[in-house]
Simulated assay, not measured.
Amino acid sequence: MNLAKKHIKILILSIIIPSIFFAIFILTVIGGTYEEYIGVLSTYENSQEEFLGEGEDEIQAGIVKGKRTSYPSRDNPFFFSSKYNPFVGTPNGPPALTHNCTWYAYGRFAEILGRKPVGLPVGNADQWYPSCTAFKKGRTPKLGAIICWRYIGVSYGHVAVVEEIKPNGDIVTSNSGYRGGKFWLQTWTKKSGYQGGIYVLQGFIYQPKEPDFTPSGTEISSSGVNGNKIANTAINLAWPAGTPKSKYSYKGGSATSMFKSTFNKMYPNHTRWGAGSKTGASCDVFVGTVVRSTGYDTKYPRGFQEQLPHVQKSSKWKRVKGFDENNRSVSMLKNGDVIFYKRTTGSVHTLIYYNKNGSEGRIEAGYRLTYGHVAPGRASLQKKLNARNIYKLYAYRAD
């Protein structure tokens, strides 16, 4: 019996003593690692508190116009031309690689902006946010912005682009990865602070304030009397179809006398403007003069960057249903529709579509190129709208 008790004591000691030594090992050897982990966890939680704290901008829900849902095609200059993307031809971009988060984010940011984003960083992803000074930054998501993360315990980090902001504040990003996935969409929740795992949010690099995103307002597919008034006024103020270009050319030509007198009334301070704008050789000035003079929208501004936001927000204008850079058919337009488009070069244009008595075409002017004139022909207009360098296209109709 005593022998059995002795064996039990030996068994207990053989279990307890190694356990004590193992505990000491954990506390002394691994303890430092544990403290480091707790420190990282605390940093992560603090970053969430900072993000969700007071004073943040209101989150605006929406979707980037032309939301990217797939890997870019090889003919897309923003991704595959060194003219627009400095990663092309380097070890971190094509042709050396066919995908990389920094190369992709740079190209997508440029694609939305419509030009090369001079000043956007070109280093490792984790250095973009702290080093960027050319664009505004913050911790509130905005459409088209670059979201920047650093990694816990790993170099480089990750960057992606905000394609969609949901009404609850969650975001959808488009991504590419270094020798990883070529392209994927990912949802990050507002509740998580747009971070998780080894991803720690640094912040967002914002697009400049340009009207490059989804137009707001009700869509419309019908036409009305105001559209007819706009088209008729434009035709009356412009050089008629068949006029020699020498008459409406900025070099040697002039605006019609009817346009000049109307222009002076609609924009009495235009003599302070520069170059062709003060004489009417500018697309936005021509369209603005036409619209104002109809009496339909007397607050219609000049300047593409003012006119597009104006029609997006005004109750007087409705976006033409289904007409955009992905569907450019002239058949969707009605008499008096105002068209806006932006080219990959960064230049912009606005014009008026007309369809009168079976005759179709456009009425337009060009900055320091032409004064207002009628350019007839449906095929000619369709060819103009089909240009490959047009990457944003809108049409608005007087309601």
Rank of each mutant, 00 (worst) to 15 (best):
A375R: 15
A365S: 15
V338Y: 00
D297S: 00
T256P: 03
S359H: 09
S257H: 03
M332V: 06
V291W: 00
N326M: 03
Y341G: 01
A395C: 10
S347V: 12
F259Y: 15
E306D: 09
F263T: 02
A379K: 15
Y367L: 13
F323K: 08
G288M: 09
Y248V: 00
N355F: 13
N326L: 10
H349Y: 07
G336E: 03
S261L: 09
A379L: 13
R388L: 12
G288S: 12
S257I: 09
N264V: 12
T370C: 07
A275E: 08
Y394G: 04
G276D: 09
K383C: 09
W273R: 00
L385S: 06
D297F: 00
T344N: 11
Y367D: 08
T289F: 05
T350V: 14
Y371H: 06
S282Q: 13
K384T: 14
T350Y: 08
K316F: 00
G322P: 08
H373E: 06
Y248H: 09
R378F: 03
D337K: 05
A387F: 13
V287A: 05
V338M: 10
G280N: 09
K384N: 14
K383L: 08
R343C: 07
K313T: 10
H310Y: 14
Y354I: 11
K384A: 15
K334T: 04
T370A: 14
S257F: 01
L308T: 05
I339K: 04
N335R: 09
G303K: 06
W317T: 00
L308F: 07
I363G: 03
G322Q: 10
K316M: 05
Q307T: 02
K265M: 13
V330T: 15
I390S: 03
T256A: 14
K356R: 13
V320C: 05
V320R: 10
G288C: 08
G346L: 02
K299F: 02
K392V: 11
K384R: 14
K383E: 14
L333M: 10
Q307H: 02
N357K: 13
L393W: 06
V338W: 01
G274D: 12
E306C: 10
S347P: 01
H373D: 09
Q307F: 06
M332N: 10
Y353F: 15
K383R: 07
E325P: 05
T289V: 04
F323G: 03
W273I: 03
K384S: 14
A395F: 12
R378L: 12
G336Q: 01
K356Q: 15
T294V: 00
Y367R: 08
S314W: 01
A275V: 11
Y394S: 11
G377A: 05
Y248G: 02
P268E: 10
K313D: 04
T256K: 05
S261I: 08
K383S: 15
D324G: 09
G274R: 12
R362E: 15
K334L: 00
N264E: 15
S254A: 12
L381C: 04
G288A: 02
T262E: 14
T370V: 13
Q382V: 05
H270D: 01
G280C: 03
H310I: 04
R362V: 13
D324Y: 06
Y394L: 11
